[in-house]
């Protein structure tokens, strides 16, 4: 019988509190959009935060409120995005894949050096200590700050002393862009194949002395494709990659220093992109 008293006591207490809560729930209930719960079921529910929200429910709320796109869930991928779009009756826009590009071709063989740098093995410290060991103030220092910053193993320093981006691994997170003390890495759309691989803004005569691959600002490319390329501070800039007609691409090969290049054998893909865009 002894055991009955605590059992009954706890039971009665629990009952009292639960009745109180039920009443409070009835009084204080908040009507919520039922879509949010449905979306939450579709989402993977791992609450990873890759979409920029604190969890799957917050993301679902964001989608319903129209504050965000349904294609940001990297865990669920396109499949989840499609399901969400079907539920809400909206179109999914696939995001344009982007990739990091290192805008320098000043390899050990092609660029001129001030001297030998024997300090800490980091671009940042080389930049502070002596302004970099290359004569070109815009060129890649090649100590691999970007490689160390990359969380996806998408970069390595090639034999020529310049970082190489492995396109398949690169998710365009921008960590390397931040890490580079000279800001010569840019996040560019994958389809952009015409790239000026130089950031040198020196006058042509000086730039030519510093590096064999420097952009000397001669203007051959900007005259060949005025709709897509312009000249600014002695440097050619591809300002509209979608506006490069196919017939002007061969003319880019006339670049005297090969600073501007059409990468890969991609001329056809560029023109298809153009038609699509």
């Amino acid at each position: 019988m002894e055991i009955l008293i605590p059992l009954i006591t706890m039971g009665v207490l629990g009952l009292l509190f639960s009745v109180g809560l039920v009443i409070a729930y009835k009084k204080l209930r908040v009507e919520e959009n039922p879509l949010i719960s449905k979306l939450e079921e579709i989402l993977p529910g791992v609450n990873c935060g890759a979409c920029g929200y604190s969890g799957c429910r917050a993301y679902a709320q964001g989608i319903v409120d129209g504050k965000t796109e349904p294609n940001l869930c990297s865990v669920g991928g396109n499949e989840t995005a499609q399901k969400i779009a079907d539920l809400l009756g909206i179109e999914v826009t696939q995001t344009v894949k982007k990739v990091a590009r290192v805008l320098c071709q000043g390899t050990i063989a092609l660029a001129k050096f001030k001297g030998e740098y024997r300090g800490i093995n980091s671009c940042f410290s080389a930049q502070i200590v002596c302004g970099g060991n290359k004569l070109c103030e815009y060129g890649c220092l090649g100590f691999g700050d970007c490689v160390r910053a990359c969380p996806f193993d998408a970069m390595y320093i090639g034999d020529d002393g310049l970082p190489v981006v492995i396109e398949e691994n690169c998710v365009a997170c921008g960590k390397c862009v931040e890490a580079c003390p000279r800001k010569i890495i840019e996040i560019l759309p994958v389809f952009q194949k015409v790239i000026v691989f130089c950031r040198n803004k020196d006058k042509g005569s000086l730039a030519r002395k510093l590096c064999e691959r420097a952009c000397i600002g001669c203007g051959i490319c900007s005259r060949a494709c005025p709709d897509g390329i312009k000249l600014e501070d002695n440097l050619a800039i591809v300002y509209n990659p979608l506006n490069l007609p196919q017939e002007c691409l061969p003319k880019l090969e006339k670049c005297p220093t090969k600073a501007i290049r059409v990468i890969g054998d991609e001329r056809e893909r560029i023109s298809t992109q153009q038609r699509a865009g």
Partner: peptide
């Protein structure tokens, strides 16, 4: 614990 759990639920709803 029972008291606290119920009260927090109440505050949360409120």
């Amino acid at each position: 614990i029972l008291v606290i759990a119920s009260l927090v639920q109440l505050v949360e709803m409120f």
